[in-house]
Every structure is written in C-alpha cells, then in structure tokens.
Amino acid sequence: MNMVELTRLKKSYGSINALRDLELKVPQGCLYGLLGPNGAGKTSTLRVITTLLAPDSGNVTIAGINALKEPHLVRNLLGYVAQEVALDKILTGRELLQLQGNLYHLKADKCSQRIDLMIAKLDMSSWIDRRCGTYSGGMKRRLDLAAGLLHQPRLLVLDEPTVGLDFESRSTIWDLLRELRTLGTTILLSSHYLEEVEMLADHLAIIDNGQVIAEGTPKQLKNQLGGDRVTLRVREFSDEIESEMVGNLLESLDVVNQVVINKSQGFSLNLVVNSEDALPLIRAKLNKAELPIFSISQSQASLDDVYLQATGRTLMDAELAVVGKRDPKLESKQAMR
C-alpha cells in the first residue's frame, strides 16, 4: 500500500509553473527522499501533501484518503517539519510542545508524558525551559521535529530538515529518522544534499522543473546508468562541437555505453563505461586521434550522475543556476496564508 499518491499534480504561481503533472507514490513504511535543486518544486509538493497548498489540478491521496476532499482526516495522520522553523520566540520549548499537544487534542497526562519522552529522545532537557528566541539553529530544528512527532504521526514530512545544521545536530536527526523507519513510520524528506538522501532513503525521486524525472531505490537508479562513470576533459575549455566530436569518437569503443555532455561544466564529457579498466582504452583512442587530455577520472556512479543523466547538468550546477534568480520575498509571500 502507498502512504502517499500524487497524480498529475499541477500548481502555478502566476506565470511560474511550480508543479507540472507531478506523479509520486510513497510506499508505506519507507524513508523516501525527494531530491532536487532549489526551486525544483520540492517544497510545493510537500505543502500540497500537508494540506497547506491546494493544487490547481490533480489528485492527492494520503493513506487511502482523498486529501483534497477530507484534509482534516489527513492532518490527524501527519507530522510536518517545515523548512523555515516557525517557533514563537516568547514561548519556551516546553510551552510550544504543550500548545502543539493541545492542537492535536492530546489528553493532558498523555501530552506531558509524550513531551517528556521527546525531550529525552532529542536530548533537549538542558534548554527546553528556555525561551525559543534563545535557541540555536540545531535546537530549533530538534524542537520542531519533536513537535512534528508529538502525536505519533503515521507519516512524517520533513522539508530540508538538516539544512544549515552542524554535524552533531544532523547526526541526531538522522539517527532518529532511521529509528522511526524501523518502527513503521513513513518518512518523506526533501533535500538537496545528495549524500543525505543516498545514505538515508530507501526510495527516492529526483524532481526537476516541477516533474519527477527519475524514481526508484538509490541502487536501482545507479544501476540504470549501466556502470562506472568516466569524466573527461580534452581541454580546460572545450566548445560544444569539439565535445560532440570526441563523444562520437569514444562511443565507438565497446567499453563506452553512453556519452553525456555536461554543458554547464565547459562541455566536459561523462561517459558510462562497462569496465573497471576503461581509462587505458579511452586514453589510447584519444592518442590515436591526436587529441589532448586535460583531465580524466573514473568513479562509481552516484546520484549526481543520475541527475546529470536525466537533466544534462549536475545538481550543484542546477543550484548555482537558480542562485540570484530566486526571489525570497516572493517565495515568502507564496508561503503566507
């Protein structure tokens, strides 16, 4: 059974299409990663799932319930840890958790019992009775996570839960997420950290430009690439014509399964190879054609290669491309209700 099913989801903000026929299925009990650069549509997807955002069209089903028709039932089942931690800086952490417990209609004794457990689990006892305004980023995130888990949700949705955190806080959160998964909670987490998703997620979807462009387990996705990757630059800065020529030349080799030209990295070549000893053969071919080699390296396929394969650019390049184009003011307005 799927905990989350999104079908042909569309959402636009004025002329910007945030979601374009997005399809997603999150199996029950798994830790599912949504990977993609900033502005890809991850947060919009999570806001639709958490009933904060109504899509322009499409269907949203959570645990078999139509979330667009019966959002109040869905809200009972899910916990949400948003990207921007919204705490009341005047309240103490404990008061915020008490408020959260009341909003989820927990009984007083159950609520205080749960709060004590969360404090112990997330190691918050030394600062939980201080006002939230004095907390560091890691403390805020832990408190937010505790608030999201207080009512024991069946689906936990986390939007970039470890962005900007120190390693210790990230590690605490990762451990907790792993434990929750073993206990049967379905976790949907968005991130633009490749390593985080690769390390944590059972399943993942790569989102780009409002669509899911690849989906599966990390292993499946990497296996689909067909083998190791060779990154090659014949010169520090090649042009497209030369890269295509070199690509055509190397495609004739038996060890090369596929050639991808990385346009955002000076038209460097990413080759999918089926042998661990591909480099000598590639070097020989280039020497024979009297082509220079500026750099060449072979590595096992990564999720970044999966992303590159699907979009023609690396995740980091995609991030850099949107830096400066984003309008934080506009995004903040879009998030406002």
């Binding site: 009972n76 008061e95 009341n102 209609h105 949700p153 909670t185």
Partner: peptide
C-alpha cells in the same frame, strides 16, 4: 517504543465541543 506511530482515523474520545474548547484555550493561553 515511544516513537512508534499511533495516530489513527478514529481516536476520538471527546466531544467536538471539548476539542474546540481545548484548542481555543491553548491558543488564547499563548
């Protein structure tokens, strides 16, 4: 385990009015 998911669709053991009172008083207290 305290972290185990518990929420279900039918945990209601209070009246709707009691829920409304609980959430309103919590928000007012804040």
């Amino acid at each position: 385990n305290p972290l185990e998911a518990k929420t279900s669709l039918a945990p209601i053991d209070k009246s709707d009015r009691a829920f409304l009172l609980q959430e309103t008083s919590a928000l007012t207290k804040r």
